[in-house]
Computed example of a mutant assay.
Amino acid sequence: MPQNPIPSRRGLLFGTAAVSAGALLTACTSNEPKETETTEKTETTGDQAPIAGDKPGKAVTIGFAGPQADHGWLNAINDNARSRAKKYDDVTLEITEGSNDTAAQIGQVQTLINKKVDVLVILPADGKALTQIGLQAMREGIPVINLDRVFASPQAYRCWIGGDNYGMGLNAGRYIGERLKDKADAKVIELAGVDSLELTKQRTQGFDDALKNYPNIKKVARQAADFTVESGQAKMAQLLQAQSRFDALWNHDDDQGVGALRAIAQAGRKDFLMVGGAGAKSAMDAIKADDSVLKATVLYPPTMAASAIDIARAVAQRKGIGGMSELEIPASITLYSAVVTKANVDQYLPTGFS
């Protein structure tokens, strides 16, 4: 799963996570005339945000390199990039197979540099390890759009766009806090992601900071899983055994949440509410059905990959962002971590990933 810059480097906050940066780029990135706009929706590619605006520009070749799609969210990242690129007659997308091996991914990016693509979009398997290849591309005059997992140096990219891990935890905590604010001696537990990842630390920190505003709520347990169904089920079973009573669960990831829900069902527990994270379609379906403990999920939208394609095209064609006075693309764009509940799930379902 992704890592984003520390909170002090959050750039431009979008008002909603479901609509990608394409909505903000409406005045500068489209080759679809307004009278032929479409609002056709799909489950995984964020196509609910219509592309509208200017005429086709110069032909642009975008190189896209990401890690291996071994997780639902990462697979949705690739789908979003491909889908958005197809919207543009003036964009050719060169996409790599993806690898979690940093040396292999560096080699893939080097190949794209050798092909002299106009702009690169890179979601690094390891931001620090791939910083040098980002610096090389920038030195050779190829702008880099750094997607989500941040490079170690801002000189390695022209624009960073990604999710808000701290904001995920913060908004999960606020939602739970508001639901439990009138309950005396409320208890919550946390099913985190991979503790070695900075993103996990940020999600936990945001959650803990939110709970500071609710003195009646105490976090009584935390268990780290591995972003898989199997780990979610095993770690959740341990939490349920150890905690006979609690009022809410914050689960960092909807993929491991599938396993967590299995463990909860097997234990016959219905005495608490659960908040997930990322925005999987399975989670949104469960929220809409309202037949389980899962009542909300906090988005970490894979539509950011579609937005990265929009931004890459605009940078290559030397365009700015519609609706902003500046002539240049911002240096940093942080997406908002919206909370999806039964009240608004229909709005966000088209962005849910499998």
Rank of each mutant, 00 (worst) to 15 (best):
P154K: 14
L240R: 12
A267N: 14
A172V: 10
L123G: 13
S292T: 14
P330S: 11
D185I: 05
G268A: 06
M324L: 15
V117Y: 00
L240S: 09
R222S: 15
Q155I: 02
A286P: 00
A172M: 06
Q233C: 03
T334H: 05
T131E: 12
D290E: 13
I329N: 07
I95T: 08
A59W: 00
R318L: 11
P5R: 00
I95D: 13
K235A: 12
I217S: 02
P56Q: 05
A263G: 08
L327M: 12
K58Q: 10
R174V: 08
T92M: 06
G163I: 10
E97L: 10
K34R: 08
T96A: 08
A312W: 00
H71K: 06
G277A: 11
P302V: 01
G57E: 10
F227T: 14
P143L: 09
G173A: 09
I77S: 07
R269F: 05
N344I: 08
G173I: 04
K270C: 00
L112F: 11
N4D: 15
M304R: 04
I122T: 02
D185W: 00
D89C: 08
A125W: 03
G107I: 08
A76E: 05
T45D: 10
N31G: 04
G163V: 13
A283H: 06
L147E: 11
I113T: 05
N100A: 07
S83K: 04
A184S: 15
A81E: 05
L120M: 04
Q48D: 10
F207P: 03
L261D: 05
A156N: 09
A234I: 14
V220E: 01
A76K: 10
P56S: 02
L25N: 13
I145P: 07
P330K: 01
K319R: 14
A186Y: 03
K128R: 08
A192F: 03
Q233E: 15
R84Y: 06
T61H: 11
A59E: 12
L13F: 13
I311G: 12
G173L: 00
K295P: 01
G167C: 05
Q317A: 09
A224M: 04
A137E: 04
V109T: 09
D54K: 02
L327E: 14
P143F: 01
V275Y: 01
A312P: 04
T204I: 08
H71F: 14
E37H: 03
A237V: 12
K201E: 08
H252I: 07
I106F: 09
N31H: 10
V91A: 06
Q243K: 05
L191Q: 12
D208W: 03
A308S: 14
P67Y: 06
I333L: 15
R158V: 10
G259W: 11
L199S: 14
R245K: 15
I329S: 08
T228N: 09
D253W: 15
I309D: 03
